[in-house]
C-alpha cells in the first residue's frame, strides 16, 4: 500500500463507494453474542445500558452526514443502529482475539483489528483505515516533537511506540518503555494526558520513507494520544498503550476520565 503524504481517502467527507454484495463466510458465531446481548439487555440498568451502546448523538451525526437534508431518522432506527455498532465492535474484536490467541499474544493491536475486518469481509474499510492510521502516526510524530510545549492536563507524558501496521515480525523486537497495565477492569485509564493540538501539520519529508507503514528506526519513536469530545463539551483524553514485555515504568497513570453526559 503506497499512500501519499495527505491521503484524502480517509476524510469523512469522502466516503468509500458502495460495497458489492459478496458472499461472506461468517464462520464466527454471532448468535451466542447476540443472545448474550439480549440477556444483558434484559437485566441491565439504565447506566449499564448507556455504557453498552454508542452515544446516540454521535450515531445520529454520522447518519445525517450521509443522508440528504430532507431525510428524517426515527428514534427506533437510531436505536437499532446503536445496537448494530456495538455488535460490529464485538464481532471484529472476537476475530482479532482469535488471531492473538493463535499467535500467543495478549495485546490486541490495530493491525489485528484491520486484519480481522479484511477476514470478515469488510475489505473496503481496510484502505481508508490504513491511510487514517498513517496520518495519525505522522501527527503523533509532530506531537512527540512538541512534547516540550504546553503541559498536559496534569498527566505525565512519556513516549510510546506505535506498532507497525503490516509488520508482525517486528512486533517481537519492539520493546518500548511504556507504562504497563497488566489488568484493567474497573474503568478505562489514560496512559498519558496530551492536549490535542488544534492545527493539523503535514508530516515531515524524512518520515515518509517507504510506502508501507514502517516506522523509521533512526528517528524518535512516535508518541500517541487520543482525544475525544463528549456531548457536554468535556474533553476526555485517552491514550493507552500496552506492551506485555515492558515493565520499566511502575507509575500508574492518572484516572483522567470525565463523566459522560446522559
Amino acid at each position: 500500500m503506497n499512500n501519499p503524504q495527505n491521503p484524502k481517502a480517509s476524510a469523512p467527507c469522502t466516503l468509500p463507494p458502495e460495497l458489492p454484495k459478496e458472499a461472506v463466510a461468517t464462520d464466527e458465531a454471532p448468535p451466542p453474542m447476540g443472545n448474550n446481548n439480549n440477556t444483558e439487555s434484559a437485566t441491565a440498568t439504565m447506566v449499564r445500558e448507556q455504557d453498552r451502546l454508542m452515544p446516540v448523538a454521535n450515531v445520529s451525526r454520522i447518519m445525517r452526514q450521509v443522508l440528504p437534508p430532507y431525510a428524517k431518522i426515527s428514534d427506533d432506527a437510531k436505536e437499532v443502529i446503536q445496537e448494530c455498532v456495538s455488535e460490529f465492535i464485538s464481532f471484529v474484536t472476537g476475530e482479532a482475539n482469535e488471531r492473538c490467541h493463535t499467535e500467543r499474544r495478549k495485546t490486541v493491536t490495530s493491525e489485528d483489528i484491520v486484519w480481522a475486518m479484511s477476514r470478515l469481509g469488510f475489505d473496503d474499510y481496510v484502505a481508508p483505515l490504513g491511510a487514517f492510521l498513517q496520518r495519525m502516526r505522522d501527527d503523533s510524530d509532530h506531537g512527540g516533537e512538541e512534547r516540550g510545549g504546553p503541559a498536559g492536563r496534569g498527566g505525565s507524558r512519556r513516549g510510546s511506540s506505535s506498532l507497525p501496521l503490516h509488520c508482525p515480525q517486528q512486533m517481537h523486537h519492539l520493546h518500548p518503555a511504556v507504562c504497563r497495565r497488566p489488568h484493567q477492569s474497573v474503568s478505562p485509564a489514560a496512559g498519558y494526558a496530551v492536549r490535542p493540538v488544534p492545527r493539523p501539520m503535514p508530516a515531515s519529508g524524512y518520515r515518509m520513507q517507504g510506502g508501507d507503514h514502517r516506522s523509521v528506526g533512526g528517528v524518535a519513536p512516535c508518541s500517541y494520544g487520543g482525544a475525544l469530545v463528549q456531548a457536554g463539551g468535556t474533553q476526555h483524553v485517552v491514550g493507552f498503550h500496552d506492551d506485555e514485555a515492558s515493565s520499566s515504568s511502575e507509575n500508574p497513570p492518572p484516572e483522567g476520565r470525565a463523566a459522560g453526559s446522559n
Binding site: 495478549k106 490486541v108 495519525m136 510510546s160 506498532l163 497488566p182 485517552v238 493507552f240 498503550h241 500496552d242
Partner: peptide, 11 residues
C-alpha cells in the same frame, strides 16, 4: 486478561 493497544479504539 486480554490487553488492548492504544491504537485499536482509534481504528
Amino acid at each position: 486478561a486480554r490487553m488492548i493497544s492504544g491504537e485499536a479504539p482509534v481504528v
